[in-house]
Amino acid sequence: MDKLKFASVWMGGCSGCHMSFLDLDEWLFDLAEAVEVVYSPVADIKTFPQHVDVTLVEGAIANQDHLELIQTIRKNSKLVVSFGDCAVTGNVTAMRNPLDGAEVVLDRAYKDAQLLRPQVPHDDGIVPPLVDHVVPVHAVIPVDLYIPGCPPPAKRIRAVLQALVEGKSPEMIGREMLKFG
């Protein structure tokens, strides 16, 4: 049997979900045996490849780049997994939504907090423009599986990946698998 083509993506999140993934420690060796990592922040691959079996998406949709990338991901992946609370709910990344628009946040970060040359980097190609409202992944594309948690505990990630590697669909029930936060 071909190895599972595995990708993970880091969007509007703090990378905590990936850190938790790394907490799988030695089980990662077993995983590496079972899957082929075709794209990930922990691997140096520039473009999102085609024919991916499983893609874990960490983070909410928060800027234009996310909006574009997520479409490619959907097109090229058999199974898209919302990985962690930010991807599933918007979570902390979306806490700016009630403030109405991205500009307030940008001003706070780039102007109010800067003593020297406060300016918002609006020029093309510097930072991707933020979307007005941060949304969870499933608000933009159909999602096949959800792993809640901020971050999802390593055990939960392992239970999901183990099942996927074995070609089963993971059982998302009970506190161990479903608790948010």
């Binding site: 919302s82 609370d85 599933v88 709910t89 918007g90 979570n91 902390v92 979306a94 806490m95 939504n97 949304v135 969870p136 499933h138 608000a139 999602v143 959800y146 809640p148 901020c150 998302m172 029930i173 009970g174 506190r175 479903l178 608790k179 948010f180 936060g181």
Partner: peptide
């Protein structure tokens, strides 16, 4: 935002989310 909530882990709403098998929310936030 359970992750930054004072009641995280001791919340009846959160517990019910688990009890009803909520893995995500279908409605717009």
């Amino acid at each position: 935002v359970c992750a930054v909530c004072v009641a995280n882990g001791h919340c009846e709403l959160q517990n019910l989310g688990i009890a009803v098998g909520m893995d995500h929310v279908r409605y717009d936030y």
